[in-house]
Design a protein around this nucleic acid. Structure first.
Lengths: 148, 148
DNA sequence: GTGTATTGGTCAACCAACTTGACTACTTTG
DNA sequence: CAAAGTAGTCAAGTTGGTTGACCAATACAC
């Protein structure tokens, strides 16, 4: 495998990732959620099950806890999350999605499904599934964070 | 295909893209090129064949021409590119790679090849090739730009 | 149990990458 | 050749992050 092949793969991967992110973002906006950035989506993913602490979020997003705290401030201001006292640790605060936050998360899922459907049209379902499985093996437990 | 599948695919894709970018960047730094950011790499790709104008670069990178101009300033200061008069249009200036810029580009290619090699170890060469082909079909001529 | 170190979170000041707006120099169009 | 458009830069402002200092609560050592 030559260097040029590696570059072609890299370029395709980055283009695909960029395009996907853009499509999801557009889909979310089209569903009426304004003022959300892609980074918020990654926060939502982490918050979705049971909430998370600011420090958890910071680790997950690959940023400082101060930056994560600012991001949470912004999401609180926009009504997508709220800070609740942490049961069992009075220092910590649990950041959880509001109903609006859940709605936005569902919108993002729909938008992602829509984007992937376009890929299914090109590659067929089994190929897309194979693509997913290979990516999962190559980026196991990969932290989802800004590409740079 | 369910929404959750789409999310898994999206997450894997973004994680892979992020990881790849990081590895390439680390590889470039390890080869002695300091003060380069991933965004510079995307500029290099565009400049590599014959150079490009600032406006070209801006379009390619998805930013304003002012921002592209600042980026070029920085690369000039670091010795990776230089501005030359544009043959045939006295308004424009052709931004071209210096020898150092070419060396950095080659380093990035090596780093990318190295990162992809790690994938070959996991998936095998034919699978990686298949991955590349599928991504190319899904993101044809995709503009390479920050994922978000 | 009490003192020390660690952890979760915030406030404040700063920085870097990018934006918008205003402008000059050259080119194209009619 | 005048009017409109294009390439590029300068300057100022915004934004999303950083580093550093700090407080409150918890965990650990003895």
């Amino acid at each position: 495998m030559q260097n040029s092949d590696a570059m072609a793969l890299s370029a395709a991967l980055l283009a695909a990732a960029g395009g996907l992110t853009q499509r999801i973002h557009e889909g979310v906006v089209a569903r009426g959620f304004e003022g959300v950035r892609p980074a918020h989506g990654f926060a939502f993913v982490r918050l979705a099950p049971d909430g998370a602490t600011v420090t958890d979020l910071a680790t997950h997003l690959g940023m400082t806890k101060q930056a994560a705290s600012q991001l949470v401030d912004e999401l609180v201001r926009k009504g997508y999350v709220e800070r609740r006292p942490h049961p069992g640790d009075a220092r910590a605060r649990l950041v959880v999605l509001t109903e609006s936050g859940w709605a936005c998360t569902r919108a993002a899922e729909e938008a992602a499904a829509e984007a992937v459907r376009a890929w299914v049209d090109v590659l067929g379902e089994s190929e897309v599934r194979a693509l997913r499985d290979r990516l999962l093996r190559v980026a196991p437990g990969g932290r989802i964070r800004p590409a740079w």
